[in-house]
Amino acid sequence: MDERAALSLVGEHVDAAGDDCAVVDGLVVTTDMLHETTDFPDGTTRYTAGWRAVGASLSDVAAMGADATAALAIYGAPEFRDGEIADFLRGCTDVCEESGAEYVGGDLDGHEEFTVSTTALGEVGSPVYRSGAEPGDSVCVTGTFGRSGAALRLFEAGDTERANDLFRFEPRVAAGRALGGYATAMMDSSDGLARSLHQLAEASDCGFDVSYDAVPIDSAVDEVARDADDRLELGVHFGEDFELVCTLPSATVEEAKAAAPVEVTEIGAVTESGIRMDDEPLSDRGYTH
């Protein structure tokens, strides 16, 4: 059973599953787990690991249009080394400060490989779910896509300083709050833009028609992409960029863009059915643990 099948099984047994966070009495809560072999390439510093792990959970909070309040992390490793733990905690603390949250601790545990489990909390009055997109809405995204794919290529090439910099993404908490007042549906792009569109379509019972030329591909991708197909793969399918993908009533797009503290790009429209890019079916491929 692969990850997606397992997640579907969870959804069959847990009614609250299916969005980026659970919503409980005005609070949002989410949890994530990252492993050295699947999530931290050789050359990833402990500072970057702490930033990225906690940032992944803060990104889920952002996707609900919530204020981030606090985060915790469990640090598991074969050995406990003072410098590594200190660097990890600095990364956790710094990404929380970037997002307006507080890092409040966690737990340590011995483990056969470096593993991090994180939890983030937030507050929200009117959460944005994945299920509200309507035909005629506009599809918009924050930031740029392909940073993590480009970072992986740079890790492989030995340019670890640049790769670590690209790996430390900014959780879009402030943008999520701003867009939350307009969005009909929203999620983060941790599994890639293509898969996010498929997940939103499933939740909202709709389709999408988007333009590849409109997708904001990060400039780092153009430095490492082998050809046009590789550029498409890194920018649309690779995932792990943690940008927001949302649908907005077309009449509010410009107002929402002006309200957001980061660049917001319109890439297409919500349709009745089917997920297409440039009038061709967009395959449901993305990041899988």
Results as ranks from 00 to 15, higher is better:
S250I: 00
V14A: 14
Y47E: 15
P171T: 05
A258G: 08
D19Y: 03
V224I: 12
L34T: 11
R177D: 07
F145P: 01
Y182R: 06
L34D: 06
L9I: 12
S204G: 07
A73I: 02
G43Q: 13
V104R: 10
C21G: 00
A269P: 06
C140R: 09
H13C: 13
D39M: 14
A68D: 02
P249D: 11
E202K: 10
A22P: 00
V104L: 10
D229P: 02
T45K: 08
D279L: 01
V28G: 00
L234G: 01
E223Y: 02
D209T: 00
D209Q: 01
L193A: 09
G181C: 07
G136V: 11
A174H: 12
P78E: 14
V210Q: 04
R195Q: 13
D137H: 15
T118V: 11
A220G: 03
S273K: 09
D32P: 07
S283H: 10
R147I: 00
I275S: 14
L152D: 07
F88E: 09
F80I: 13
A56P: 05
S273V: 08
E202W: 06
E97T: 13
V54Y: 02
R172V: 00
H289D: 15
H35E: 07
R81Q: 09
A73N: 08
M33G: 04
L166Q: 04
D82R: 04
V29D: 02
T142Q: 08
S283N: 11
D279W: 07
H35V: 07
D278L: 04
G286R: 04
D279N: 06
D19I: 01
E170F: 02
L200H: 09
L179C: 09
R195F: 09
S99P: 03
W51R: 13
A5G: 13
S148G: 07
V54M: 02
E97W: 00
A201L: 07
T142K: 01
F40H: 10
P127Q: 03
A86N: 05
A53S: 15
S131Q: 01
F88N: 03
T44D: 12
E263L: 06
L154C: 11
T37L: 12
E272P: 05
A63M: 14
H13P: 00
A86I: 05
G158L: 11
T271Y: 15
A86P: 04
R162K: 14
F145N: 03
C92S: 12
V215G: 01
V270P: 13
D222Y: 11
A220N: 10
A174D: 15
A6D: 10
D222F: 12
A63S: 15
R153N: 13
G239Y: 07
L244Y: 04
H35I: 09
H237Y: 10
E202R: 15
V236H: 00
T44W: 08
A101C: 07
G235H: 02
M187K: 03
T44R: 10
D213H: 05
T184L: 09
A201M: 03
D159W: 08
T252V: 06
G268P: 11
D218G: 04
S126W: 06
V236T: 09
A120V: 06
L58S: 01
E161P: 06
V139F: 15
A151N: 03
L197C: 14
G83N: 10
D67K: 11
D20M: 12
E223D: 04
A258R: 15
H289I: 14
C92D: 05
R4Y: 05
I217F: 04
Y182I: 02
A220K: 02
D213V: 00
T37H: 14
K257R: 15
H35F: 14
G235C: 06
V14Q: 10
